[in-house]
């Protein structure tokens, strides 16, 4: 039935759908990619390959739009990003190659499991606004990873440094792999690792995570593009819709209840994860 729909209806549906997704994502504090891939692969007729390709570009355009402001305000840190991005982007290439080589049913099932895991992380992970780091570890001191940013809400400058750099780098290898394999932005994992593991203040973690996506997703996006897994009629309206939605979302953010929105997004993620899992297992095709 849906397959018989005129071609021009699809970009319009995608644009409208991703516009609302963009609003929801901003209000819930998640990137668009993590919602886009499971929902579009679960409920639209497109093959998972093109949804993952589009998902990477969706996350990439969002990160490109937000990155400059975050960098200039010192809320994203280039010194913190560069070593982590090198690891994550290398592994995201490997993830993309593995994801494109695996049979679709396996990738779809693993996507479902991953999305359910992300929902679990979102429910259970606590966030610490200003984690206490007594002393930076040896790696972070050698690399000069520390910073100062101006905290508007407190009208004062906050100094920060990081620890547990090596285990965090290992986790970023895993995050890159997942991002490339499933076409997900990786903000859901970047923020807890940067904040809880390394000890960066929450705002620096969120800002650096968003900026980091512009590098991690670029390398995986190239693999999907060069393998022919990017269809512009799916990708471009999704990128434009989610960007416009994010723009509107920032403006309605003040009027919404963040806790309620976050609960809705987690519920949607659990539903989309189950759908993906059951689709991959052939139970609900």
């Amino acid at each position: 039935m849906l397959e018989a729909t005129a071609w021009w209806v699809w970009p319009i549906i995608l644009f409208v759908f991703t516009f609302f997704l963009g609003i929801l994502a901003v209000m819930a504090g998640v990137g668009g990619g993590v919602l886009f891939v499971p929902l579009v692969s679960g409920f639209f007729p497109f093959h998972l390959d093109y949804v993952r390709g589009a998902g990477l570009f969706v996350a990439l355009t969002g990160a490109l739009a937000a990155g400059p402001g975050l960098l200039k305000r010192g809320l994203a840190n280039l010194r913190l990003t560069m070593p982590l991005a090198l690891i994550a982007s290398t592994c995201s290439i490997a993830g993309a190659l593995v994801g494109l080589a695996l049979p679709t049913s396996i990738t779809q099932t693993l996507l479902g499991v991953t999305i359910l895991f992300i929902s679990f992380v979102m429910i259970t992970s606590k966030r610490v606004e200003f984690p206490k780091v007594e002393k930076g570890d040896r790696i972070s001191q050698t690399l000069g990873i520390y910073g100062i940013y101006y905290e508007e809400s407190m009208d004062r400058e906050i100094e920060w440094k990081v620890h547990r750099t090596l285990p965090s780098m290992i986790l970023f290898a895993f995050i890159g792999l997942i991002a490339g394999m499933f076409g997900l932005g990786a903000g859901w994992a970047n923020v807890p690792v940067l904040n809880l593991m390394m000890g960066t203040p929450l705002k620096i973690a969120a800002g650096t995570s968003k900026f980091l996506l512009s590098i991690t997703d670029t390398s995986a996006a190239w693999v999907y593009l060069n393998n022919g897994s990017v269809i512009p009629l799916i990708t471009i309206p999704s990128c434009l819709g989610i960007m416009l939605g994010s723009y509107v979302g920032v403006r309605v953010l003040a009027k919404a209840s963040p806790k309620m929105i976050r609960t809705i997004v987690i519920a949607v993620l659990i539903f989309a994860g189950l759908r993906s899992l059951l689709k991959g297992l052939g139970v609900w095709v």
Partner: peptide
């Protein structure tokens, strides 16, 4: 619409 249901 007849093509994007298939893999790459």
């Amino acid at each position: 619409p007849e093509l994007w249901i298939h893999d790459t």
